[in-house]
C-alpha cells in the first residue's frame, strides 16, 4: 500500500511538473515538486523504505531531464541523507523546521545543479538568471513547501488507516 501511494503520488507530481507547470507562466520558476516528497520520506518514513524509492525516482528524473545523467539521483540521495541526519542529530521535526526545510532542500538541489553547470562552463547571462531562478524557487518553497509536507503526511496516514481497516474487515 505504501509503495502504491509512493508510485501514484510521484507519477502525479512528475506529470504535473513536466506537462502542466510549463504552460502556466506564474509557475515559470517553480521548484522541483519531488523535493517536498523526498523530504517527507526523510522526515516521516523509515530509511529502508525510502532509499530504494529515491534511487528509482532519481533515475526516472534523470531520464526525463536534459542534464548530466545521475544528477537527480545524486541530488535526491544527498537530500534524503541530509534530512535523515538532521532529524537524527538535531531531533528536530517541529513546524518551524517543516516551514523552511523544503526551501533548504530547493537551495541544496540548485547548488548541486549550478555546480554541475558551472563545471561545463557558464555563459555571460548565467549569474543573473541563476540568482533570479534560485530566489523565486526558494520563495515558492517557503510559501508552499510546508503544505506539501502536511498534505503528503495526511494522505498517507489516511490511506494506511483505510487499508488496515479493510484488511481487518476482510479478515486477511
Amino acid at each position: 500500500m505504501t509503495y502504491c501511494f509512493y508510485i501514484c503520488a510521484c507519477l502525479c507530481l512528475i506529470i504535473f511538473q513536466t506537462t502542466i507547470i510549463p504552460h502556466i507562466s506564474l509557475f515559470n520558476n517553480f521548484y522541483d515538486l519531488l523535493i517536498p516528497f523526498i523530504i517527507y520520506l526523510g522526515l516521516f518514513r523509515p530509511t529502508r523504505e525510502g532509499i530504494l524509492f529515491i534511487l528509482v525516482l532519481g533515475f526516472l528524473m534523470d531520464n526525463l531531464s536534459g542534464g548530466p545523467f545521475g544528477l537527480y539521483v545524486t541530488t535526491y540521495l544527498w537530500l534524503f541523507i541530509v534530512v535523515k541526519l538532521l532529524i537524527k542529530y538535531l531531533h528536530a521535526r517541529n513546524n518551524i523546521l517543516l516551514l523552511f526545510i523544503v526551501a533548504a532542500g530547493v537551495l541544496m538541489e540548485n547548488i548541486i545543479f549550478i555546480v554541475s553547470i558551472f563545471m561545463s562552463g557558464p555563459d555571460s547571462q548565467f549569474l543573473t538568471i541563476t540568482i533570479r531562478t534560485v530566489i523565486f524557487q526558494i520563495l515558492w518553497a517557503v510559501c508552499t513547501g510546508f503544505f506539501f509536507l502536511i498534505f503528503f503526511n495526511h494522505i498517507h496516514t489516511k490511506l494506511e488507516k483505510w487499508f488496515n481497516k479493510l484488511i481487518r474487515d476482510l479478515g486477511i
Binding site: 513536466t18 522541483d32 531531464s65 542534464g67
Partner: peptide, 14 residues
C-alpha cells in the same frame, strides 16, 4: 510535444 524538462536549468522536450 508531450512534455518538457522537469528542471528549469536544462532545455529539453519529450
Amino acid at each position: 510535444v508531450i512534455g518538457q524538462d522537469p528542471s528549469p536549468w536544462f532545455k529539453t522536450i519529450i
